[in-house]
Design a protein around this nucleic acid. Structure first.
Length: 263
DNA sequence: ATCTATTCCTGGCTGC
DNA sequence: TGCAGCCAGGAATAGA
């Protein structure tokens, strides 16, 4: 599952190879990834020079002269450099040197061209690694509901997904079902620090490879080895030995330690 | 406006 | 061994 650390790793692995390259041809074997973006046409992309590559939350932005190409990896999306397109290639960009293949088994991802920044990106919350605690606290105080779904809400902060929400809550010692208004300033401070710490650490480890995540060079991340709760149902907590529990919260699998994380 | 449930999609499990 | 049926989940969308 590509979340902020995985997408950041993909961007870092793409940038040296792609900045300055020209897209010669764009081909979409599975137009579903274009969703309802009729303006994303191969003719428009042909001849475009990639000026910069950035990450906004979980989105990858390719800055072109006259617009921007936005790719969201969804659940199983991969951007691969210089490979032969396989059966799940959904978009293929032939470059002046090499190629770039967007591969996505489940087609939850999307590829979208836009002249300006798409509106849905403008609606996203701030980057969690660029959000000082006082702003985080201000935003948190204005919200209702349980804390885990809020962390997943991209309008609250952008880039956190199911893995890092669970991992951050464990590190902060907060039960995922905790009502947001019951989190005081001190616990909020612990949560803010935990989010920053877990994301930074995961980026250093080049992300988590749970099922099939790899970067643009096909390399796996190693942060899954540092997971404290995600994917560890029934295994002993690394802090207290209590078995890790899994519940469904906000329609998402949620992992936590019943002893270390209290409501 | 804000929160919650549903839908999309398919490889890989599980269990009979 | 084979196969039906379920599961994973990001985010757009609809409903409360």
């Amino acid at each position: 599952m590509p979340e902020l650390p995985e997408v950041e790793t993909v961007v870092r692995s793409l940038a040296p190879a792609l900045v300055g390259r020209t897209i010669r041809e764009a081909y979409f074997p599975a137009p579903r990834v274009l969703r309802d973006s009729p303006e994303t046409r191969a003719e428009r992309l042909s001849g475009a020079v990639i000026q910069a590559i950035e990450r906004i939350g979980k989105n990858i932005l390719f800055r072109l002269q006259d617009g921007v190409l936005v790719i969201h990896l969804g659940m199983t999306g991969k951007l691969l450099l210089n490979t032969t397109p396989g059966p799940y290639a959904r978009a293929v960009f032939t470059l002046d040197q090499g190629n770039l293949v967007y591969d996505d088994v489940r087609q939850f991802g999307r590829v979208e061209w836009s002249r300006d920044l798409p509106n849905r990106l403008a609606k996203l919350g701030p980057e969690p690694l660029d959000l000082p605690f006082p702003s985080f606290w201000e935003r948190l105080r204005r919200r209702q509901g349980r804390i885990k779904p809020l962390l997943l809400n991209q309008a609250f902060v952008r880039g956190i997904g199911n893995i890092y929400a669970d991992e951050a809550l464990f590190r902060a010692g907060i039960h995922p079902r905790t009502e947001t208004h019951r989190i005081g300033r001190q616990r909020a401070q612990r949560l803010h620090a935990a989010v920053v710490e877990v994301l930074r650490h995961a980026i250093e480890q080049r992300g988590s490879s749970i099922s099939d995540y790899v970067d643009a060079l096909g390399q796996k991340g190693t942060f899954q080895q540092s997971h404290q709760v995600y994917g560890r149902e029934g295994e002993p907590c690394r802090v207290c030995g209590q078995p890790i529990r899994r519940i469904v919260l906000g329609q998402r699998g949620t992992h936590f330690c019943p002893r270390c994380q209290r409501g």
